[in-house]
């Protein structure tokens, strides 16, 4: 992407300047309440370089990611608009991309989307006209070639997004994941946010291969991290969420944190504290791994934790750019 710095998204500037980036998430409400978005946005202000606005996450109907993104933007956040291929075909996605850009959105995260059978409308017909990789290609094409997916030229302003995608280093087949990441780089993705990392050794193994392939130089990789709220949440993620890898040691650590605490409230607080501690430790480990350019902190429905974690991890204050970003060698 060859833009003058003035047109860059904040996230892009942070990464370009070689700072260790921080993104986080904001889940829009299951209603039409703008204040719900604004409230969460205020909790996240100043804690991250950009904030993902989820798109009907886990296939549950919520306020549109673009609408919620604009509300969050008005509260001073820079949104990353998540876009899944589950609910829209290429016509609808491109029209939303034009609209999102016109409304000031500058980052997009391209996803396949959780299957609708997980959500609250399992009866729905899914779309999957394109997959996430093809969506990356399409968004890049709108920007770099001024062309719609069909090849037709865009006359006038084209949407110029900083393009992200996701990768699950713990999904199967494990050996294929670094290559899939390479494929996303080839499609033109600028940055990657990974699935939550709890199994650090396995993530390291993944990153070693990624670095060996040189993919970390083609795009910026933000490692997914997040605080566990309770041992039950840890067990649920370990046992029930497809493609999640929560080692037993982490579950046991969470369980141990509450031992001997009789008071229910105090126990819950101890669990949360331990969850935050594990998260902060994980962030420190991520900073040591070659090829990791930042973190993506997921604390959905626990937005209060974000400022605590970023503070304790030494990630605050976030860089600001009054003047054009300094171009470092690595960017």
């Amino acid at each position: 992407m060859n833009d003058s710095d003035g047109a860059l998204s904040n996230l892009q500037k942070v990464l370009k300047a070689g700072h260790f980036a921080v993104t986080t998430e904001l889940g829009p409400p299951k209603n039409a309440d703008a204040e719900a978005v604004r409230h969460k946005a205020r909790l996240l202000r100043g804690c991250a370089d950009a904030v993902n606005i989820t798109d009907n996450q886990t296939a549950i109907v919520r306020m549109s990611s673009i609408a919620a993104g604009v509300l969050a933007w008005q509260e001073g956040l820079e949104p990353v608009i998540q876009m899944t291929c589950r609910d829209r075909n290429r016509l609808a996605m491109q029209s939303d991309l034009l609209g999102a850009y016109a409304l000031g959105m500058r980052n997009i995260l391209c996803l396949s989307g959780d299957h609708q059978t997980f959500g609250n409308h399992p009866q729905a017909k899914n779309v999957h006209d394109m997959d996430s990789l093809q969506l990356v290609q399409m968004v890049v094409g709108l920007r770099d070639h001024n062309r719609f997916q069909c090849g037709e030229e865009i006359k006038g302003q084209s949407p110029r997004f900083f393009v992200g995608a996701a990768e699950n280093p713990f999904g199967d087949p494990f050996d294929w994941r670094p290559y899939r990441l390479a494929k996303k780089a080839k499609a033109g993705a600028d940055f990657i946010q990974t699935q939550l990392v709890f199994n650090v050794p396995r993530f390291r193994q993944f990153m070693t291969k990624v670095v060996e392939l040189g993919v970390h130089r083609q795009l910026r990789i933000l490692a997914g991290v997040g605080p566990l709220k309770s041992p039950a949440a840890a067990r649920y993620m370990r046992d029930q969420v497809p493609g999640m890898d929560v080692p037993d040691a982490i579950v046991e650590r969470m369980e141990a944190a509450g031992q001997g605490i009789a008071d229910k409230k105090a126990r819950a607080a101890a669990y949360k504290e331990e969850g935050i501690r594990i998260c902060v430790e994980t962030i420190a480990q991520m900073r040591e791994i070659e090829g990791v350019a930042g973190i993506h902190l997921m604390a959905i429905e626990w937005e209060e934790a974000v400022s605590v974690i970023t503070e304790r991890a030494g990630l605050l204050p976030r860089p600001t750019f009054e003047t054009p970003a300094v171009v470092s060698e690595s960017a």
């Binding site: 959780d114 999957h128 997959d131 999904g171 494929k183």
Partner: peptide, 20 residues
């Protein structure tokens, strides 16, 4: 593939089974 993906597995592929 439950999502008709043409470029490799989604993140939910686990131990040979589909997330669905």
């Amino acid at each position: 593939c439950s999502k008709q993906l043409l470029n490799g597995p989604c993140g939910g592929s686990s131990q040979g089974k589909c997330e669905v």
